[in-house]
């Protein structure tokens, strides 16, 4: 299996936060969803990949190349889409193109204009006046115009209405239909990932909590609810994010243990949102 991205024991410390031994890999041709609470380290990881932040230790390989030594070749082949406009807002689309095209060997002007037309972006308006959805589409148009083989998206859907989000998913699934392309997609909107992601990496407090296929994690956990009195202690100890309310308790549990549960306890499948909530509760307990 060819890996488009391999992160190995990435460590990066700031005063109030650190990434600890973050490791995960993305096979070529697939989409990886990157989830975690705000402050769990997703953006720091992405910034380390791009060299915007200087990593303390660890290896990051993209296309089999080292992200520090071979950054020039890597950046020719990747695109990044951020949660907010990363261009000066007083510019117009023609300025953006003229600014950026000389940096990319494979810039395709025709494709850029085709996409601008398709996304219905106004060429003669200052991009600062674009709506959030239009700004995202502009960044996507740039991302798709230099034959990038890997697109990294850092919370591109924050603040987008459902229509724009759906349009983005359309664009991404079209992009991935070419098996040479891969996507790393960090987001809070887990519903999108539950649909299109092939792999998922969950970050919690600067560490990788899970990395593997989406199918596996979607099947792995259940949320259990019931009366505390009915719950055996060993199961309570194995649970994640246990909390007792007046009406009963809630917790998350690995599906395998479900067979040991007494009948009175109800359970249902845990989705990504549930997983994030319960691991956050568990972290809060351990502080």
């Amino acid at each position: 299996m060819e890996y488009i991205m391999k992160i190995d024991n990435l460590c990066k410390s700031y005063k109030a936060f650190s990434l600890k031994n973050v490791s995960f890999s993305l096979p070529k041709g697939y989409i990886m969803g990157f989830v975690g609470q705000n402050g769990s380290g997703k953006t720091t990881t992405i910034r380390s990949m791009l060299g915007i932040a200087n990593k303390d230790s660890g290896n990051i390989e993209l296309f089999g190349l080292d992200n520090v030594k071979d950054y020039r070749e890597i950046k020719q082949r990747i695109s990044v889409v951020f949660d907010s406009l990363c261009y000066p807002p007083h510019l117009k689309i023609k300025h953006i193109e003229s600014m950026l095209k000389s940096f990319y060997d494979k810039w395709d002007s025709e494709e850029f204009h085709r996409l601008i037309k398709k996304f219905k972006l106004h060429e003669n308006v200052k991009i600062g006046k674009f709506s959030k959805g239009m700004r995202m589409k502009l960044m996507i148009a740039v991302a798709l115009s230099h034959k990038a083989e890997l697109i990294i998206l850092d919370e591109p859907t924050s603040g987008l209405d459902p229509v724009a989000r759906d349009e983005l998913l359309d664009i991404l699934t079209e992009y991935i239909s070419d098996e040479n392309n891969s996507i790393l997609f960090s987001t809070h909107i887990t519903a999108d990932l539950e649909r299109i992601a092939d792999y998922v990496t969950v970050l919690n407090d600067g560490e990788v909590w899970y990395t593997g296929t989406k199918d596996e994690i979607m099947d792995k956990y259940v949320v259990i609810k019931g009366d505390e009195a009915d719950l055996p202690d060993e199961i309570m100890n194995k649970s994640i994010g246990y909390h007792n309310y007046r009406n009963g308790f809630e917790a998350m549990l690995e599906r395998e243990i479900v067979s040991d549960l007494p009948e009175e306890i109800e359970y249902e499948k845990a989705n990504l949102d549930d997983i994030l909530i319960y691991i956050a509760k568990e972290s809060a307990k351990n502080e």
């Binding site: 060299g51 070749e73 890597i74 990363c86 261009y87 000066p88 807002p89 940096f103 990319y104």
Partner: peptide, 18 residues
């Protein structure tokens, strides 16, 4: 100040430049 206000280090970070 334009660099700073728009956090253009993100753009520069994605371009093949040092």
């Amino acid at each position: 100040s334009i660099d700073e206000q728009n956090d253009m280090s993100r753009l520069y970070g994605s371009l093949p430049v040092s």
